[in-house]
Computed example of a mutant assay.
Amino acid sequence: MALLKVLLLLGLGVSVNSAVSLQKRIIGGHDCADTERQYHVRLEGSNGTHMSLCGGSLIHPNWILTTDTCWKSETGWINVAKIDVHQGPGRWRAFRLRNNPVVYNPEGWRHDIMLLKIKKVANAPLGQLPDCSYRLKIGDTVQLAGEGATTTGPNNEQISNFAPATHLQCVDMPVVEASHFLPTYGRVFSAKARNKDVCYGDAGSAAVFNGKIYGVISPGVPRYACESAASIVDVCEYMEWIRARTGLK
């Protein structure tokens, strides 16, 4: 599955040798309020020459929820989680990720959702998991977020070589397709809005509804911005697994 995703990204014109690879950004959004998403985690990978950028959510003092694409397993890469991103440079807490990720793969292939275990974090806000007695339907509005640039290239082409934005970006998008099965990704729903999009690097960040994390942004994106709906992993489909792994009730 990992190889398939790399091939898909290469086919979309993404340079995996860029200064910041596999990056996404929020297009058509706005600065998240400082009181929002304080559980947001920046996930960075580096091999000394290249870097990768993703998002995640601290859902337990020991656990981050993200997408499986956000783990760099190649020799020489170091994975780091930055907590308290809202506090700004020099104030966040960085944790080197040494434990292997936990990925959902009951059928023998990896779904696009992952848990990262970290050293216990004290005094950090935690994201709330969904109330799955209510399932998202078409027309519901979810809030997505990310840390990349907010512009596109010529002909609205997505750009990959941008450092993280100075402030977390948020964007509201309505659900246009309810939960369904997508091969190689798992159970997902889709959101789309005119002149709004997520792109390389927002993968792993939360899709929020009524203040709760109902989804995790999936990394697959088209070459041009604002053309296709964003695919979002449906967290409700994986709650039994998340609770079993983390001990959350």
Results as ranks from 00 to 15, higher is better:
Pro219Cys: 07
Tyr134Pro: 00
Val121Ile: 13
Asn99Trp: 07
Ser160Leu: 10
Thr151Met: 04
His30Glu: 11
Pro125Gly: 07
Trp92Glu: 04
Phe209Asn: 02
Met173Ile: 08
Gly215Phe: 00
Lys249Tyr: 09
Leu7Arg: 06
His86Tyr: 11
Gly88Asn: 06
Asp31Ala: 11
Arg93Thr: 14
Ala33Cys: 03
Trp63His: 06
Trp71Lys: 04
Gly108Phe: 08
Gly186Tyr: 06
Ala207Trp: 00
His60Met: 10
Lys24Asp: 15
Leu10Arg: 08
Asp234Cys: 01
Ala230Cys: 11
Tyr224Ile: 14
Ala124Leu: 07
Lys119Cys: 03
Ala33Phe: 06
Met239Ser: 02
Ala206Gln: 08
Lys120Glu: 11
Lys117Asp: 05
Tyr134Ile: 03
Ser21Glu: 12
Gln38Pro: 00
Ala81Val: 05
Val216Phe: 01
Val16Met: 12
Asn156Arg: 13
Tyr238Asn: 06
Trp241Ser: 06
Ala122Phe: 08
Ile242Phe: 00
Ala206Thr: 11
Val102Thr: 10
Gly28Phe: 10
Asn99Arg: 05
Pro183Phe: 15
Pro219Gln: 14
Ile213Ala: 01
Arg110Trp: 08
Gln158Pro: 00
Pro222Val: 00
His60Trp: 13
Ala149Val: 14
Ala191Phe: 01
Val20Thr: 14
Lys249Ser: 14
Val6Pro: 02
Pro106Met: 04
Gly90Trp: 01
Gly88Leu: 05
Leu136Ile: 12
Ala244Gln: 07
His40Leu: 14
Glu74Thr: 08
Ala33Thr: 12
Trp92Lys: 01
Tyr214Arg: 05
Pro101Gly: 02
Glu74Phe: 06
Pro125Asp: 09
His111Trp: 15
Val14Ser: 07
